[in-house]
């Protein structure tokens, strides 16, 4: 049950950051036009970035713990 709560916390955090970033990149005041194509592309691009960041982060942490840096 704790694992499930953490999964919910993770999904909530992801949706919150995604919405913040894609709203910022795809829509601007006075918000008179939609930009749904941009939102869809932004979703894919953000998830690709999430993967790239995870890969770099895990590689860096493994390297640092091998070399005794941390």
């Amino acid at each position: 049950q704790i694992a499930q709560e953490l999964a919910v916390a993770n999904a909530t955090e992801l949706v919150s950051k995604l919405t913040e970033n894609c709203f910022e990149k795809c829509l601007t005041a006075p918000y008179s036009t939609n930009n749904e194509a941009c939102v869809d592309q932004c979703l894919t691009k953000y998830m690709k970035s999430w993967n790239a960041v995870s890969k770099a982060y895990v590689a860096r942490i493994q390297e640092a713990s091998t070399s005794g840096e941390i």
């Binding site: 992801l14 949706v15 995604l18 919405t19 894609c22 709203f23 795809c26 829509l27 005041a29 006075p30 918000y31 008179s32 939609n34 749904e36 939102v39 869809d40 979703l43």
Partner: peptide, 22 residues
């Protein structure tokens, strides 16, 4: 006033679209 109301609606549209896309 118009901008605030659009902002809310577009923000929620974006949020719902992203959740469905995920």
């Amino acid at each position: 006033e118009e901008c605030l109301s659009s902002c809310v609606n577009k923000f929620l549209d974006t949020n719902i679209r992203l959740v469905k896309g995920l």
